[in-house]
Nucleic acid binder design. Structure first.
Lengths: 211, 211
DNA sequence: GTCTATACTTCGATAGAC
DNA sequence: GTCTATCGAAGTATAGAC
């Protein structure tokens, strides 16, 4: 998207090790802990190789981001195409590993313009796909979404796991179980198949339980 | 909470300027952009003064955090004691400035243990107060919270603004209006008084609108 | 592709004059 | 309280041998 393509094969073992090390560092100690020296050390490679495979730190972060983003979009696509799109969709956005990493990239975007524009572009794509999948899945099941459009549901659906991920990092889990149970109830009502349970025919009503 | 108290009066003009500069830097460019030199430059002070007023960078961040945290707790307290606690409470957690700064501190907590423990302690206090305020306000209004306890509501209430703040930073506002409208509807049902509108007597039912 | 060596910058922190 | 001067560590990035 910007500048010349760095050297090195896309499937190089060292390259992958550097990407993995970067992810690990970001999750363990935050994006600010990522430096060429530390990444190389964790990957068991020479620091200069970071510049061989990725021209700059920006490119390193972008490569990490793109790898995860593409994987996530494929996962979302797969979820939407399956038999239980709602449950699968929830599973995709709930991946705690991804939620935590996304949080880091959001913070990182705040002072790396290249990361920011990439994140914005990806977010739009992801939300659009999510909204389409939601719209189609709800229509197929004859669910009336009422006043809350799929766009609004997408905000909630994509946001709740991120909230709980933030809380979780701080060791705060008060009320999480109940929120998860509420989601599970919706999933069950619309798609049946509680994980490991019996199949209950999906209802046609979208009336939520009393708050 | 740790180590010796740094020098300098609590109400020193320079000290305040350094704190303000730190906040500004965090919001503009992220916590990683905060360095003694940049803080001093933005505050129009000498870099060495950072170490005079705050012994270390940890202390600087903690001082910034505590100042905001105390102010926020007071705001929450005030909201809970007023005539329209639900609306006031929502207003407190919706402060976009605070939401963005909180995000930075969460990211910062990931690699500064001192910040982390302070953030955890504050979060627990804030949530506890929020939960108590919510419980009391709903009971006073005769609202049955059903299966979703105040703890769960607190997760949603405190989380939604953070989600929308994150989105907002990326310029993504799809569906936000609808979520806000939903919140407004609840506030109106329980407390009436739409901002600038006529007073509608609060209902007794907590049945949410269809999703 | 991998390594050493190094240039240059910025960082946190301290000593000590004023 | 404020300043200059400076140390040592760590950062990004490049040149060039192997």
């Amino acid at each position: 998207m910007s500048g010349t393509r760095p050297a090195g094969a896309e499937d190089s073992k060292t390259r992958t090790a550097l990407l993995d090390a970067t992810v690990q560092l970001m999750l363990e100690s935050g994006y600010a802990a990522v430096s060429t020296r530390k990444v190389a050390a964790k990957a068991g490679a020479n620091p200069a190789l970071v510049y061989y495979y990725f021209r700059t730190m920006d490119e390193l972060f972008l490569a990490v981001f793109r790898r995860g983003a593409e994987a996530n979009l494929r996962r979302l696509e797969h979820a939407a195409a399956g038999d239980h799109p709602l449950r699968a969709l929830w599973k995709v956005v709930s991946e705690p590993h991804d939620a935590a990493l996304t949080m880091e990239f959001i913070a990182l975007a705040n002072h790396r313009e290249a990361v920011r524009s990439e994140l914005v572009a990806y977010s739009r794509r992801f939300r659009h796909m999510q909204k389409e999948a939601l719209t189609s899945a709800l229509r197929t099941r004859g669910v009336d979404t009422g006043r809350l459009s799929p766009a609004a549901l997408t905000v909630l659906l994509g946001g709740l796991p991120r909230i709980m991920a933030m809380d979780g990092v701080l060791g705060i889990t008060d009320g999480h179980d109940e929120v998860l149970a509420l989601i599970e109830e919706y999933l069950q009502r619309f798609e049946g198949f509680p994980p490991g349970g019996d199949h209950v025919p999906p209802g046609r009503s979208v009336e939520p339980p009393p708050v």
